[in-house]
């Protein structure tokens, strides 16, 4: 890749998805774009980027941008935060909702480990008698396809997932281990670009968006936070990574990474 190639990809990532991509990190760009270039039938990443530039084809542009979006994913990452959602936040929300369904959204689900971790934790210890609607989204169509399939390699199921949960919630599959159909069927999937208008998605009682903001430009980070705040139902919670901040939202002292709508200060008590 030439410096011009890297600069073009960095610009497209910022323009289309607010992604902060450092054009000096040649290895990262080559690493992420190499598989895309091969899949699209190009001899090199440089040839692929030339096609992105010259053809001005949306499909190729998005293939590049999606490949550069954050891909880190593991089961039960920040398990304490998941435990807090299941044992404290959802029972609180359910009491307020008084019988109505709670809508949960994992806003950058990657290959699905985070949303399935939530579904497993809910099945094991979630509030009884509460109707839950679980949505999951990601910017990357290919990761979303993998998430929907719910099949993971031996390496993937050994990062963060206990053996007890593996035998309880997975089945053998030809390519590895498949999440049980009863969990997979609980989740509804959609490709979502978080910098775009999200109001069409409706309101959510809980939005989980962990470890994404750090990958965004300053402008995009502010927009995404405002977008996520905009889809929170009154009294709803936004859950970020334990070390992430959400200016403008009320924090919960004993729950790092948990934020409630400023308009409903009682929800943070």
């Amino acid at each position: 890749m030439t410096p011009q190639d890297r600069a073009l990809i960095a610009r497209l990532c910022a323009e289309r998805a607010g992604l902060k991509v450092d054009p000096d990190k040649a290895y990262l760009l080559e690493n992420r774009l190499g598989p895309v270039a091969r899949r699209e039938g190009f001899a090199s990443v440089h040839d692929f980027v030339c096609a992105v530039r010259d053809r001005d084809e949306e499909r190729l542009i998005w293939a590049a941008v999606e490949a550069m979006s954050p891909a880190e994913s593991a089961f039960f990452r920040e398990a304490q935060s998941l435990g807090c959602i299941v044992a404290e936040v959802l029972p609180e929300l359910a009491r307020r909702r008084d019988g109505g369904a709670l809508r949960l959204w994992v806003a950058a689900c990657g290959a699905g480990q985070e949303v399935y971790s939530l579904a497993m934790a809910l099945e094991e210890a979630g509030p009884a008698g509460v109707r839950l609607e679980i949505f999951a989204s990601d910017l990357c169509e290919r990761r979303l396809e993998k998430a929907q399939a719910g099949v993971y390699s031996q390496f993937e199921v050994q990062r963060g997932l206990s053996a007890h949960r593996l035998v309880e919630h997975f089945e053998m599959a030809d390519e590895g281990f498949a999440i049980s159909p009863r969990l997979r069927q609980q989740v509804r999937w959609r490709r979502v670009n978080l910098v775009e208008d999200l109001t069409r998605l409706g309101r959510f009682d809980l939005v989980v968006c962990r470890h994404q903001l750090g990958h965004l430009t300053d402008e995009a980070r502010a927009r995404v936070l405002a977008n996520l705040q905009g889809v929170l139902a009154p009294g709803g919670w936004l859950v970020l990574g334990g070390d992430e901040a959400a200016p403008g939202l009320a924090t919960a002292n004993d729950r790092p990474g948990f934020f409630s709508r400023a308009a409903d200060s009682r929800a943070a008590a």
Binding site: Q154, F155, Q158, L166
Partner: peptide
């Protein structure tokens, strides 16, 4: 790496199960 064998190991009293090959991250996890 068969789930039935993993289940058997847990039933006999293992608290965790690692499938080979493994690396440092998996062992630490």
């Amino acid at each position: 790496s068969d789930l039935d064998r993993i289940r058997e190991a847990l039933e006999v009293g293992a608290c965790e199960y690692i499938m080979k090959p493994f690396d440092g991250d998996i062992l630490a996890s």
